[in-house]
């Protein structure tokens, strides 16, 4: 395959997200402007100007009208997808790290970093249908985990919130009361910072990537460890194929070590594993920096990767990808 290279960002990519139909691809980077691209040919549709810091995460509503972005400038902003107009800005007293709309787009979960003595939090905001009636109050605030919470996502039926971060422990919280329901087993769980978390298409299980060089597949209800995929490098990004029993994990050595070692030693490739057999299927090379983000098109026929090198690479699979036999 010949990937499409999109060089719209001047700084490392942080997050990629497809909308539900898979025709738009949203990219966040450490430069201040989230960008939307057409996912078929990689043409840039527009940018969302207004943030004043690195943008860490984004999510798009199911009907592809609203975008929510979380940034290091201590705000979370709501955008109109079509025009790029800012609809609302939530202000926090520390950088926002992860954002996600709930099923139904009525709520959003936001995590904030520990900053200036404030501990890290998970907050739930109500998202008004009409953005003129939007309020900034949090419905729920959860405190407790130490260190950054790198990802927080909604569990099945919005009943729970699943979080993971620097303390390497996955937790399931009750999304109404904020009570801690489950904590991942320390021994089988990750040993180092959880960098990424990606749900399966039906939300029944999810994949986490960690700096301990593994990615692990978990049940979203019981938080039991299902599978482990071992890599040679820290894992920064994970994604689950919605079409085949494949998972893809990406990473690479830490950015600070890139210049000190051989180019080939970096292993900046997106690695495909068989989800069930845990067997490596193959690797897709191309980035010349660690891969920070991965996303599968909802139709499973293409995927994109965003790297520390500032490129988004959009890969449409060759037909023989779909006939790979293990």
């Amino acid at each position: 395959m010949r990937p499409i290279l999109m060089k719209g960002h001047e700084r490392p990519l942080t997050f990629l997200r497809y909308n539900r139909e898979g025709d738009l691809l949203f990219s966040c980077a450490k430069d201040h402007t989230p960008t939307v691209w057409f996912a078929d040919n990689g043409e840039r549709l527009g940018t969302y100007r207004g943030h004043n810091g690195a943008v860490w995460c984004c999510d798009v509503s199911r009907d592809s009208t609203r975008l929510i972005t979380g940034s290091a400038d201590q705000t979370v902003k709501l955008w109109d997808v079509q025009t790029g107009a800012q609809l609302y800005s939530f202000n926090f007293d520390s950088p926002a790290r992860a954002v996600e709309f709930s099923v139904g787009d009525k709520l959003a979960v936001i995590t904030t970093d520990p900053f200036m003595g404030n501990p890290s939090t998970i907050q739930v905001k109500q998202i008004a249908k009409d953005s003129s009636q939007q309020t900034s109050e949090s419905v729920l605030t959860i405190k407790g985990p130490q260190g950054r919470i790198n990802r927080a996502v909604w569990g099945p039926l919005n009943k729970t919130i699943i979080s993971g971060g620097e303390d390497a422990v996955l937790r399931i919280w009750d999304s109404e009361t904020g009570k801690l329901l489950k904590e991942a087993d320390q021994e089988s769980g990750h040993q180092k910072t959880i960098t990424s978390l990606s749900k399966s298409a039906d939300g029944s299980h999810f994949l986490t990537g960690s700096l301990d060089k593994t990615a692990k597949l978990w049940d979203a209800r019981t938080l039991t460890l299902l599978k482990t995929y071992a890599s040679e490098r820290p894992v920064n990004a994970v994604a689950i194929s919605p079409l085949l029993d494949h998972v893809v994990i990406g990473g690479g050595q830490e950015a600070s070590h890139v210049t000190t070692t051989d180019r080939r030693a970096g292993k900046f490739e997106a690695k495909f594993f068989h989800k069930i057999l845990q067997e490596e299927i193959g690797g897709v090379k191309g980035h010349f920096g660690p891969i920070n983000s991965l996303a599968f098109n909802p139709d499973g026929r293409s995927f994109s990767s965003g790297g520390e090198d500032g490129y988004v690479r959009l890969h449409h699979f060759d037909p023989d990808y779909f006939n790979i036999k293990m």
């Binding site: 010949r2 499409i4 999109m6 990689g42 193959g282 897709v284 090379k285 890969h315």
Partner: peptide, 12 residues
Amino acid sequence: LTMVSTEEIVLE
């Protein structure tokens, strides 16, 4: 901004 890779990338 958008270009097609000159390199053919295969799933190794």
